[in-house]
């Protein structure tokens, strides 16, 4: 089969229209999970089938796509999805956050602030924030309907009772515009503040669970907390060892058999651009010097 045999961005036009309708509804009711008829995609569930379908429905030939997986542009999932759209939509791709018009992400929000011209598409494994508290879909729908979110606060309180603080570090539940409790997908809670009042349109796609939800630009999003235990966007108490950034989310990497470790920015584009600008960390060298070595 040749690449031309595919419709633009793989999905047929009817399906894309159906997904766009779901997206519009999601945008109209921020945080509400809109059911949609998720299609079989040429990748397994859990690899971003929801995000890919949302991306396919939003793509135009003029778009410039960036795909990140845990902040990195060069991981298997990101590279595969980028190649998929290059092949089926023949669109331009980039690794630079500022150049991208559409960013598909798995589990991170780019460090660089987004703009109004950008769309951020999240891959979501489990869209229902109440799923582990109430396994019945009919019940969770009713709980959302009645705004019955006490159970979620109990769950966070149990964290405090057990650990002395809210131990949830990722997929930290948020409340959208004071109405729906939403699962922000498994982004670290460090990224939660970036969800709120973002100029970019944020779309969430869950393929296996057949749900789409959205945060329109400048939507107010609040992470759930208590007066005496306010929300804290935590990260490893280190600076990036390559670029020296103190305000970026870090990956911890073991460097030898003795347990030595280093910390590097999870957002590879952010780290690279800082190093290109001459910033260096404990182990880093400016990119120009490194090339000379």
């Amino acid at each position: 089969m040749t690449d031309r045999a595919y419709n633009f961005a793989y999905l047929d036009e009817q399906t894309k229209r159906m997904i766009r309708r779901a997206i519009l509804k999601g945008v109209a009711v921020p945080g509400y999970q809109v059911p949609f008829a998720s299609r079989e995609m040429p990748m397994p569930y859990g690899w971003g089938t929801g995000g890919v379908q949302v991306t396919a429905a939003c793509l135009t030939p003029e778009d410039r796509l960036k795909v990140i997986d845990q902040g990195a542009d060069d991981t298997t999932n990101a590279v595969s999805i980028r190649k998929f759209f290059q092949r089926t939509a023949d669109i331009a791709t980039t690794e630079a956050t500022s150049e991208a018009t559409l960013i598909q992400t798995r589990h991170r929000i780019p460090e660089q602030a987004l703009t109004e011209d950008q769309i951020l598409v999240y891959q979501v494994p489990i869209p229902e924030p109440l799923r582990f508290l109430e396994p019945r879909e009919t019940e969770t729908r009713k709980m959302h309907e009645l705004e019955e979110y006490g159970l979620m606060h109990v769950k966070l309180y149990e964290d405090i009772a057990r650990h002395g603080h809210i131990a949830t570090a990722y997929a930290y539940p948020v409340k959208v515009e004071g109405r729906y409790v939403m699962d922000p997908s498994p982004i670290p809670k460090f990224d939660n503040p970036k969800l709120s009042d973002s100029p970019a349109l944020q779309l969430f796609g869950a393929g296996r669970e057949q749900r789409i939800y959205a945060l329109p630009p400048y939507t107010h999003v609040v992470s759930l907390d208590f007066e005496d235990h306010p929300f804290e966007a935590s990260k490893a108490p280190h600076d990036c060892d390559l670029c020296g950034a103190s305000d970026s989310y870090l990956d911890e990497v073991i460097t030898d058999d003795r347990g030595s470790r280093m910390y590097v920015c999870s957002d590879t584009d952010h780290c690279r651009s800082r190093r290109a600008a001459g910033f260096t960390g404990r182990l880093g060298t400016p990119l120009a010097t490194e090339a000379a070595e």
């Binding site: 845990q70 990195a72 060069d74 991981t75 298997t76 999932n77 590279v79 990956d251 911890e252 990497v253 073991i254 590097v264």
Partner: peptide
């Protein structure tokens, strides 16, 4: 926690 940074690095 992996000794390698990502799947891609391991595969590379």
């Amino acid at each position: 926690m992996p000794a390698y940074r990502s799947d891609t690095q391991r595969l590379h």
